[in-house]
Design a protein around this nucleic acid. Structure first.
Lengths: 211, 211
DNA sequence: CTTGTTTTTGACCATTTGGTAAATACACGA
DNA sequence: TCGTGTATTTACCAAATGGTCAAAAACAAG
């Protein structure tokens, strides 16, 4: 009765599980795991608390489920980086996609940031299993581009970190940005800035090596 | 008796308040405001919970106090940016200082990140009163440098954002970096990368304006 | 309509947690 | 040494919160 282990989920089950997970994304991203309450999730989802526990075994399971779903979305742009494409274009497109994700999916970005900030207690396995291999593969691709002289030589790992940091910053630190920019829409000017920065960094031949 | 409004704090008071605030920094930065408990702070500080509430009016006041203290430390490097110094050197030095702060004061970085992530509910006034004016002033200085042809033309606001994002990333996302770099010390290679990136971006005359 | 199954709810429970009150131990100057 | 204000502890409390359970309601199939 509680576990419909392999029965196909009914229409109503699909709908309610989706409502719960969406509400959970809202609440978890806004308050973190410990700060979120089942009552908040229940209210946001328009369901009663016991009803929510009818669909999920507990707060923990809801959180893990949301994080798992997030992981796919999150890795997508990096996975989409094409080893056969034009190196500079590929990376600048990646930057642009990540920036658009910050604008369009800020909840996801904040949920992820929250989890990593707390030391990734629940996501660590996912990071090792999914992110790490993809990261290593993409680093190798970028390194190959650099060795072929198509990009300026920089540490690919820190290049990726800097892309993540600068793009996600606009979602994760939005509260601060709102104060400092006073309501100006940052996305377009940010896009221009980041494109300039990474193009300058990666255009071959211009790289002044530090003394 | 509870409020020693203007009495000079005794030796023991100073010591215990400091112990509490240090413990609070530990716990708040690791678990966020809602995730932190007074018991955790008490244990970390080596005091009993009621004893802690003898020195502070409540969890909220502890948090606010820690955040206030943090603000000074946090603004220091930006405040130290000298309008009379050499532009490129000033900014690269600022990057370096911020990176070192991420390495040496990760708790402070994470506490700050936590607070902003939650929408800066308790820090918003501080941001407007302290950070905003300083931010505007420094933007003006950088803009002046650019207008004088000493730096390449980019948006100073996004420049500062990118410095914050890239440097604080190494503290705030350390859990992720640990997984991806597998125990390699990132600070030195990160420093080299960031110096290269920002020098390339800001060296005048090399700035390829996007089409 | 009847029956068996799924979904939802209302009433509860145990634990955690921020906070309090009163009693006790302690420091220290007169 | 004594007394007074300071510091600390012990024993609590009330609210919040994650979770349970049995029964009611809704629903689907014959």
């Amino acid at each position: 009765m509680a576990e419909q282990i392999q029965k196909k989920p009914s229409r109503i089950q699909q709908r309610n599980r989706r409502k719960i997970l969406d509400a959970a994304l809202d609440v978890f991203s806004a308050h973190g795991f410990r700060g979120a309450t089942l009552d908040q999730i229940a209210e946001q989802a328009g369901l009663s608390k016991p009803n929510i526990l009818y669909y999920f075994d507990g707060k923990e399971e809801i959180h893990v489920t949301v994080l798992s779903q997030l992981m796919e979305t999150w890795l997508d742009p990096l996975a989409g980086l094409d080893p056969k494409g034009d190196p500079l274009t590929e990376i600048l497109t990646y930057v642009q996609r990540k920036l658009e994700m910050s604008r369009d999916l800020p909840r996801e970005s904040r949920l992820f940031a929250n989890e990593i900030l707390q030391g990734a207690p629940r996501m660590d396995p996912h990071l090792r299993a999914d992110l790490k291999p993809l990261f290593d593969a993409r680093c190798a691709v970028i390194q190959a581009w650099m060795d072929a002289g198509k990009l300026a030589q920089v540490d690919p790992r820190h290049l990726i970190f800097s892309i993540w940091a600068t793009t996600q910053h606009y979602a994760d630190f939005q509260a601060q940005i709102d104060v400092l920019l006073e309501g100006q829409e940052p996305t377009d000017t940010a896009a221009q800035f980041l494109q300039t920065m990474f193009r300058n960094l990666l255009t071959p031949g211009q790289n002044s090596t530090p003394a």
